[in-house]
Write a protein that binds this DNA or RNA. Structure first.
Lengths: 152, 152
DNA sequence: CCTTGCTAATTATCCTGGCTAAGGAATGGC
DNA sequence: GCCATTCCTTAGCCAGGATAATTAGCAAGG
């Protein structure tokens, strides 16, 4: 939808967008920090595994695209994950240029544990809110998800 | 927080927290990507300038604390910013161990331009929402800020 | 004083995580 | 069979974190 810009839209004057942007950026950063350093698995690695969990299995290129990074970066990340036994890399037999990456059981299990752990911080924070605030947040959640758009 | 599950508390069962966490993490990441590489100034540098803008002026240590990074990292960031003419570093005359860092006019001006630019992505996204959704988002904003807590 | 101890910043070094550029292997069209 | 294309990897760059160790300045106490 083009900038319909019935500008009036007082809902989001520049200042609010700025505040929202800063709040989101900081929260994202905070969450990333909190989730970091679990068992020597880095945030990028966890993120890659999460994508893999969603995708089921994927070629290295697909995975890179999902993570919005370039293939070489993903090569490195996957290499480490493989070392750790969290994913398996197998050459696709129908097209031997491709590498199929899959979560191993260990990877899956790690991902689950990791999620719980990463939720903890936010859970605590949310618990400090009043019920009304929590309700408001719950209402806003779908919108936040919508902001992410259809891309992935 | 145990699943208290008294009616009211349905707002944030584990799944919602997970969804929220993922949405926030992704949005944060997306924003970071979008805001990147403006004029060769990196996200960390912009962020440091933003803190500086808020704080007015600060010692290097205060700045590092505000950005939640270690002093050595801030030393480097500030060094680059100084090279670029965005901040000035002066030794505090009352305590010559301290370095006072301040935004230069150029830094201020850059920050303003940068904000506008970095807002653009989010502004577009928000514009795609219905007025109701925008209103909801505006209501949720203070709560998101509260999630960040008193820390900074 | 001047020594002892603390604090602020810096320097040195390491690792991760992006990137691009360039190379190698497999595919597929012709 | 050759050529272009595609997918991955390797090599090398730079930023951004970190820690450990060093230097400079301050503040007391003997």
């Amino acid at each position: 939808m083009a900038p319909k810009a019935t500008a009036a839209t007082k809902p989001a004057p520049a200042t609010d967008v700025t505040r929202l942007r800063m709040a989101l950026a900081r929260l994202g950063r905070r969450l990333r920090q909190e989730g970091t350093a679990i068992d020597d698995v880095t945030p990028s690695q966890v993120s890659a595994m999460a994508s893999l969990d969603q995708l089921g299995a994927a070629t290295l290129g697909e995975l890179a695209a999902a993570e919005r990074i370039q293939p070489p970066s993903m090569t490195r990340i996957v290499a480490r994950l493989e070392e750790g036994g969290f994913v398996s890399r197998t050459v696709d037999q129908t097209d031997r240029r491709c590498v199929r990456v899959e979560l191993t059981p260990a990877g899956s299990e790690f991902l689950t544990r990791s999620r719980t752990r990463r939720d903890a911080y936010l859970t605590d924070r949310v618990a400090d809110l009043s019920p009304d605030e929590q309700a408001l947040l719950a209402d806003a959640l779908p919108i936040l998800e919508q902001l992410l758009g259809e891309e992935r």
